[in-house]
């Protein structure tokens, strides 16, 4: 009697082999990843990368660069991913600073025109033009409008301190131009000190533009520089008048100073104003 058998055993062999091969390739001898892009990172590392991009964004204040770095992760909706991670970081055990950085970067991704003031660097930058140290103690950052800067999201809020006497006159004791390395923007950097040489937070600083328009901001949002520090981003070609406090001395005709780098190329500088109560 002739035994009749089909070829189903071949299919069985193929399936067994495929399963064995797949298990081997995943668990026993997994593929080695070499020279990958950030988009290939595993979830945990993606989050770490995203957090680092957000923290670096606070230092550089460069929207384009931060967005380009985020694009490397190839998130379908980068802003959503940032917000989700920011919320995750808010939970117990998370990092509040990272959460804020992520939230701020999410805002920057959604609103391209958003500008922030970069965090100051504590390590002195060698080379380039000499950076004038702030009276507080740290190197001063440059850049955009305090009105659009969610300062409180970047830096800790200043601890509540007694407000200065209302109407106390602040006198300008120092005005100088600051030439920092290129690409940082131009600021009016204001330092307000009391008679005891202590930085005074929550002092209103009013800036008026020659052809109309007044903006005000307050000291104290950058305690890491000085409790009495505030800044304002200038636009080239504009002239500003500035007053500290309601009866402080009016400083007129402030405009972007022109600096030169080591190659003799001009770049916009900043102005530092130091006010003190007599």
């Amino acid at each position: 009697m002739k035994e009749k058998r089909g070829s189903l055993y071949l299919l069985t062999g193929l399936v067994i082999g495929a399963v064995l091969g797949l298990l081997t390739s995943i668990f026993i001898v997994p593929a080695r990843y070499v020279d990958v892009a950030p988009s290939a990172l595993k979830a945990v590392d993606r989050e770490q990368y995203r957090a680092l991009v957000a923290r670096a964004y606070l230092v550089e204040a460069d929207n384009g660069r931060a967005v380009a770095r985020l694009a490397l992760l190839a998130d379908p909706r980068p802003a959503d991913a940032l917000v989700a991670q920011a919320e995750k970081e808010k939970r117990p055990g998370g990092d509040e600073h990272t959460s804020r950085a992520l939230a701020l970067l999410a805002a920057a991704v959604s609103q391209k025109q958003l500008l922030i003031t970069p965090l100051p660097r504590i390590a002195a930058e060698a080379g380039g033009q000499a950076t004038e140290p702030a009276p507080g103690e740290q190197e001063t950052p440059t850049l955009p409008p305090p009105t659009r800067t969610p300062g409180a999201t970047i830096t800790p809020r200043p601890s509540p301190t007694p407000l200065p006497t209302q109407g106390a006159p602040y006198a300008l004791i120092q005005q100088k131009e600051i030439c920092e390395v290129e690409g940082r923007g131009s600021l009016i950097q204001v330092f307000v000190f009391n008679a005891a040489d202590e930085g005074v937070p929550a002092v209103r600083v009013e800036v008026s533009i020659t052809d109309g328009g007044v903006e005000s901001f307050f000291t104290g949002f950058y305690p890491e520089i000085s409790p009495g520090y505030a800044d304002y981003a200038m636009v080239e070609g504009m002239t500003y008048n500035l007053r500290v406090g309601s009866t402080g001395q009016l400083v007129q005709n402030l405009s972007v100073p022109q600096c030169k780098n080591k190659d003799g190329e001009a770049f916009p500088g900043s102005i530092q104003l130091v006010f003190k109560q007599p």
Binding site: L10, V15, G17, A18, G21
Partner: peptide, 17 residues
């Protein structure tokens, strides 16, 4: 033939993995 089928399947599985 059975062993060859297993080897073929394993190769395909490894390539996929």
């Amino acid at each position: 033939a059975f062993i060859l089928a297993i080897m073929l399947g394993a190769t395909a599985g490894l390539m996929y993995g």
